[in-house]
């Protein structure tokens, strides 16, 4: 996949930081916006943010690496966030996780070699009475209770 190189990272950072205005504690919202636009928060971005906000690279790296949401590398074309927490476990979530990973041909926490799908753990989506649950490309999916439900997810990520 070739993508046209857009504006340089420094320019993206400057533009999104300006959009934060006078907001206090703007680092986290800025990082969210950067990941939204760039797909991940890489080293180049960390350096640009540090420079723009007059912070050390270590400070920015510390924040980026603390939060599970921020990626160091681009995700697959589709992202499946599968819930691992207690309520989904009480409904057979552990076995479903194994079956889902097998069917998608990717281990939990990994991106498939062809870049088609990333499977990530998430700890609770707040849909705890209808699990096991997942977010598939941001859309909530509930009652993943067997092969049919797994096939529907597989079909979504095959596109």
């Amino acid at each position: 996949m070739t993508m046209e190189r857009r504006e340089p990272v420094e320019a993206v950072v400057a533009r999104l930081l300006a959009a934060q205005g006078e907001r206090r504690g703007a680092l986290l919202p800025l990082l969210h916006d950067l990941q939204e636009e760039l797909g991940f928060v890489g080293e180049e971005t960390v350096a640009a943010v540090a420079h723009a906000m007059n912070l050390s690279r270590a400070e920015v790296h510390g924040v980026v690496s603390f939060y599970h949401d921020f990626r160091k590398a681009p995700a697959g074309r589709h992202v499946v966030k599968y819930c691992r927490a207690e309520s989904c476990r009480s409904r057979g979530g552990v076995a479903i996780e194994t079956a889902l990973a097998d069917r998608l041909r990717v281990a939990m926490g990994e991106t498939r070699a062809d870049g088609q799908v990333t499977l990530e753990p998430v700890y609770c989506l707040g849909l705890c009475a209808i699990g096991p649950n997942a977010l598939v490309d941001g859309a909530p999916v509930a009652r993943i209770d067997g092969a049919a439900a797994i096939e529907r997810i597989a079909a979504t990520v095959a596109a």
């Binding site: 504690g25 703007a26 986290l28 919202p29 924040v63 603390f66 939060y67 599970h68």
Partner: peptide
């Protein structure tokens, strides 16, 4: 104003949450 977390469970602890709003690690 709404602030959005970033996948850290511990930010539900009130002082970690305040640090997170301040733009720090949620410790």
């Amino acid at each position: 104003e709404v602030r959005v977390g970033a996948g850290a469970y511990v930010c539900g602890e009130e002082t970690a949450l305040l640090d997170s709003i301040e733009g720090k690690r949620g410790q």
